[in-house]
Design a protein around this nucleic acid. Structure first.
Lengths: 174, 174
DNA sequence: CATCATCTTCACATTTTTGTGAATGTAATT
DNA sequence: AATTACATTCACAAAAATGTGAAGATGATG
C-alpha cells in the first residue's frame, strides 16, 4: 500500500521517498565498513537523476555543512567511488557516480585481498616450519591468492555479459 | 639479515617476532573494517600452535584485560570467525580458529553482497522508471546479483582444488 | 559443601572519531 | 578590477567507540 507514483519533488529534486531511501542505502553501505557521511553522499549522488551533484546540492539535500561534504567527497574520490567533473562554464564542480564506480569498488576490494595474502605470507616466516600454524597460514595464503585469481575471471565474465546484452551502451555519454 | 631461526619463546609460547607479527596482521585486518581488538585476538589465535587459545592466554599475550578479550571473542564468534570449544576436564574454554573460518568469512561477505543487492532493488521503487538513475541502479543490482552467483562457483572450485591436492587433509583432528 | 580458578557483564573514564563554524582561497560575472 | 558565489581547510566541540576495574556467575577440586 501507499504507492507514491507521483514523485513529490523536494528541495533539490529529491522526493520524500527518495530522501528516505538515501538514508536507507547509506545504512547498508555503512554496514560494510564505509563511514556514515561518505555513504550518504554516495547514495545521494547515485539516486540523483544525472548521477552527479555539486557540493552545495549535497549539503542542502543531506542537511549537513559544506565542510562535511568536502571531507566525504575527498575520501570517495580517493578510493575511486566518485569522480570529479569540472563544468567549463561554471565554478561548480560536479561529483559523479557512474556505473563503472562499482567496478572500481571491486578492484579496491581485490587490493584488500592482496594485503591479506601478503599478510599471511609474512606469517609463514615467524612460525615453525611444518607446524600446525604453518599449515593454517599456508592454506589461508593459498585461498586468498586463489580468490584474487578468480576475481579476474569473474570481472571478465561480467564484461562479456554486459557487452552481449547491450553492446552499444558503452557509447552512452551524458 | 637478522634471521631469527631460534624461536625466542616469550610469555605464552609466542616469540618476539610472533608477537610483532600478530600486531602486523591485526593492522591489516583492521584496515578491512574489523575493530582493533577482535583483529588482534583473531591474529593471535591464528598464529598459536594449536590454533586455539583460552581467554586468559589471550589477555596475557595481548596485554589487555580479560574483559576486552571477552568482548572481542563474543563478536568473533557471532560472525563465525572463531568458534568455542569447551574442554571436558577443565573450566577453560578454548577459542578456536580453524582453516574453515576463512570460508565463513567469505560467506559473511556474500551476505553483505546480498544486502547491497536488495538495497539497489529498493532504490528502483523510488526513482522514475526508465530514468538515468533507474538504469544506474538496475545495473548495480544486476552486477551484485551476478557477483553472488559467481561466488558459488568460486567456492566450489576451491573445494575441488583442495580435495584434489590433499584429499585426506579433511580427516585432520587436533 | 566450600573454596578456588576462570570467564563474563556492567558502569565509567579515556581516547578517537566526526561534523560544525569561521577563515581562506579560487574562479566567474559585472 | 572588484565583487560575488563556491568550495576547501583548520581548530574546536560534540558524539561515539573502546578498554578497564570491580562485581557477579559458573563450574571444577579439595
Amino acid at each position: 500500500m501507499a504507492e507514491q507514483v507521483a514523485p513529490q519533488e523536494g528541495p533539490d529534486g529529491f522526493s520524500e521517498a527518495q530522501l528516505a531511501y538515501v538514508e536507507d542505502l547509506a545504512a547498508t553501505i555503512t554496514a560494510s565498513g564505509v563511514q556514515r557521511m561518505p555513504s550518504r553522499v554516495y547514495a545521494a549522488i547515485l539516486v540523483s537523476e544525472q548521477g552527479s551533484m555539486t557540493a552545495a546540492q549535497l549539503a542542502a539535500t543531506l542537511q549537513v555543512s559544506p565542510a562535511a561534504v568536502s571531507t566525504a567527497v575527498r575520501w570517495l574520490t580517493q578510493v575511486g567511488m566518485v569522480s570529479r567533473r569540472s563544468t567549463p562554464g561554471s565554478r561548480r564542480e560536479q561529483y559523479v557516480v557512474d556505473s563503472d564506480s562499482l567496478i572500481r569498488l571491486i578492484a579496491h576490494d581485490t587490493s584488500a585481498l592482496n594485503s591479506w595474502t601478503s599478510g599471511f605470507a609474512r606469517g609463514l616466516e615467524v612460525v615453525e616450519p611444518g607446524s600446525s600454524a604453518a599449515h593454517r597460514l599456508a592454506e589461508l595464503r593459498e585461498f586468498f591468492t586463489f580468490l584474487v585469481e578468480e576475481m579476474d575471471g569473474v570481472m571478465q565474465r561480467w564484461q562479456e555479459r554486459k557487452n552481449q546484452s547491450s553492446p552499444s551502451r558503452s557509447a552512452r555519454k551524458r
